[in-house]
């Protein structure tokens, strides 16, 4: 029992059965065919999980193991026999007898187009995964024309839903705009935002439940925003940085990383990443400490850890400055 046990307790308590979590409810097995190969997975599994079981690498952007699938990026679409449209592998549950193609020409066309649409409108330079996918699907975003110049600060935030300026034909519309820097811990570079909803989910019910940001606007003007685009410092933000943790493109970034990149000193080849435990409260969160030149440059947390599921609080994620500041 907690608190004080009797000091005269001399005999160790006899060991009983090992207390463990109750086993998950047994699930039926569903058999289906993917790319001509048969696979059996538990009922309720997704096509993505089934494909992974076969070692098929399905590209994803808005999917992350620790978030509820929102299936908005559509890069994971696959072809399911007798389905009028392609279906998102990340969220579509397996059904018995499904016949799935993950690399048909139809699939490749849609994946290529998703990449081209994003790369022609968003700065994907800090999304390394993206470059791999582009090569794999032969994406040539230049087909849509040269990128339009960046919008002025606040211009995209002022868009009226249901209205836009007619295109003029010379270039392809983009989301490029100045970086938002309103605090010392992290920056928001929405030129790099593919609106994958991950940050909103991490700020919302999937982790932090603070709801400081949401998707605002509509259509191409859809964007991640605080209420009325107020600075983070006026918003509900508690600087847990879990949005940075899930951002797939570097749109959300530690200010330390952003500043080093600006200065040209950021060099991941010179960095180490070491797992340790947070020094603050007694929860015991695993921190991955990223060190370059004997200085901590950022802190993340592994997704597959039972304590954090990849999520931290402001102290764990940012409270390491004192280590760098010691002489």
């Amino acid at each position: 029992m907690t608190g004080e046990s009797a000091p005269d307790l001399k005999i160790p308590v006899p060991r009983g059965p090992v207390p463990v979590a109750p086993p998950p409810r047994p699930r039926n097995t569903v058999e289906l065919t993917i790319d001509g190969r048969s696979v059996a997975v538990p009922e309720g599994a997704t096509l993505l999980e089934a494909a992974r079981q076969l070692g098929i690498d399905t590209p994803t952007l808005c999917y992350l193991e620790n978030l509820t699938p929102v299936n908005v990026c559509r890069i994971c679409v696959v072809e399911v026999e007798n389905s009028r449209t392609l279906v998102p592998a990340c969220s579509r549950k397996v059904e018995p007898g499904m016949v799935v193609k993950t690399d048909s020409e139809r699939v490749r066309l849609s994946r290529r187009m998703v990449l081209e649409l994003l790369a022609s409108s968003v700065d994907v330079s800090t999304a390394p995964q993206f470059q791999d996918y582009m090569a794999r699907y032969g994406a040539t975003p230049e087909r849509f024309g040269p990128p339009a110049p960046p919008a002025a600060a606040g211009e995209r935030d002022a868009a009226r839903p249901g209205h836009h300026h007619a295109p003029h034909g010379a270039d392809a519309a983009t989301v490029h705009q100045p970086v938002k820097v309103d605090n010392d811990l992290y920056v928001r570079d929405y030129s790099k935002c593919i609106v994958c909803y991950k940050c909103v989910e991490a700020c919302g019910t999937d982790a932090q439940n603070t709801f400081a940001i949401a998707v605002a606007g509509r259509g191409f003007d859809a964007r991640i925003s605080t209420e009325f685009d107020v600075p983070l410092t006026d918003s509900a933000c508690v600087y847990c940085g879990n949005c940075i943790g899930v951002c797939p493109t570097g749109a959300l970034m530690f200010k330390s990383e952003h500043d080093m990149r600006q200065a040209g000193t950021w060099d991941e080849t010179r960095q180490t990443a070491t797992d340790t435990i947070c020094a603050y409260c007694g929860v015991g969160c695993t921190l991955t400490v990223h060190v370059q030149d004997e200085k901590i440059v950022k802190v993340t947390s592994p997704l597959d850890h039972d304590v954090t599921h990849g999520h931290l609080c402001i102290k764990g994620r940012f409270g390491w400055e004192f280590v760098n500041q010691r002489e």
Binding site: N183, A279, Y280, K315, E321, Q325
Partner: peptide, 15 residues
């Protein structure tokens, strides 16, 4: 955003 007597947390720029 702070911890005990602030020995550690006093050093980062918490908004």
């Amino acid at each position: 955003d702070s911890y005990n007597t602030g020995v550690q947390t006093g050093h980062f720029a918490s908004p």
